[in-house]
Nucleic acid binder design. Structure first.
Lengths: 194, 194
DNA sequence: TTTATAATATGATGATCGTAATATATTATA
DNA sequence: TATAATATATTACGATCATCATATTATAAA
């Protein structure tokens, strides 16, 4: 067996990482297979020994990014001093709607960036997105103790305000939207059935 | 002067209408110039006697759709029986978050569909999107009497929940998100400075 | 009806895409 | 060190894109 144990898996992960970056920077359709392979330090030829086709790469990259993002949200709230009486969900909202997340789309959540584009893709990819949203909603429900609908609305507020904060050119308005959206998102839990 | 007065303008509007439909159905990058011209009943060759290039078409189509959408929102709220004591802004929220708007993306607001893609385009197109958002925010502010930030958060809730309601496959959850987002959007005005 | 011209169609160009076939390079084992 | 198997690179193919050059059609005016 040439090549060390697990070599191919590592390369495959490098391709996924490159794709995750490219898709969030430039969108799915604008990110070509050759450019993604170059981002992983390879040429385009070997792509099809790792993935069936581009659609499979998109599907796996979406799952990859979503589970990574949820993991990060989960651990980031744990790391922060949990001595306070502030609910854990508030820290997730604060991170999601932070200027850092707004200004580093290529590291963050795919939903505000790619959900519009995925909605125009195949039914398979739409299913991946729907499943990802269910994971986010379940995660928010788990952290906040809220029902599915309430968690969905909170996610809506986070996604919508991040999208607008990124699109509005006026930096003051952008930051104001983020900050007031934080307040609103946290308020939802106090005005809804648990 | 061959061809009747205003003929070219009519054709130009047909191209814009076709592009507006195509972009909202399939996205900007997925909508080719030939397919848009076919949608307007023409062949691709004449395109460049109407528009400098595709980017100019995108910019004009965005402005076209946004002003049409705001006009429709404005008049639809006027037509509805204004005898009730219900605030005008509530009817706008109700229409924006209606199942009809969710299920007919190709007729509706471009923001949930295209803002992700436009954020990846040229600075010029990003400026168009930013200007469009300012128009929406000013419109909401005008109708509701709220400040810029509050209007921006309400727009965030509408955009985010429409995006999620379209992406979530479970129809019950989708409708629940829309309905509870309506409640939340209307609540914002009661908990914010005017 | 003829003519001049504006509007549209046809066809071509170079670039890039996704994908595949084939050749080359790499390395664990013998 | 030689070998066999595997991973990667090179090259190619057909399709489609945005754009442009040129030909053709349609119509208002003469």
């Amino acid at each position: 067996m040439p090549y060390p144990e697990g070599h191919k898996l590592k390369v495959r992960n490098r391709i996924l990482t490159s794709a995750a970056d490219a898709f969030r920077r430039n969108g799915i359709r604008e990110s070509s297979v050759p450019s993604i392979m170059k981002g992983a330090g390879l040429t385009h030829g070997g792509f099809y020994s790792h993935f069936e086709n581009k659609e499979e790469l998109v599907a796996e990259t979406c799952n990859f990014v979503v589970s990574n993002t949820i993991d990060e949200l989960r651990t980031s709230t744990r790391n922060e001093h949990s001595d306070k009486e502030e609910p854990e969900i508030n820290r997730i909202i604060d991170f999601y709607l932070s200027p850092y997340h707004r200004d580093h789309a290529e590291e963050g959540c795919i939903v505000p960036i790619l959900s519009g584009e995925i909605a125009q893709c195949s039914a398979d990819l739409q299913g991946i997105l729907s499943h990802a949203l269910n994971q986010y909603i379940a995660f928010i429900g788990e952290i906040s103790g809220s029902d599915e609908t309430t968690s969905g609305v909170v996610l809506s507020i986070m996604v919508g305000s991040l999208l607008l904060a990124r699109s509005v050119k006026d930096p003051v308005l952008s930051t104001n939207i983020l900050n007031q959206a934080k307040v609103q998102a946290k308020t939802v839990f106090n005005s809804s059935p648990k």
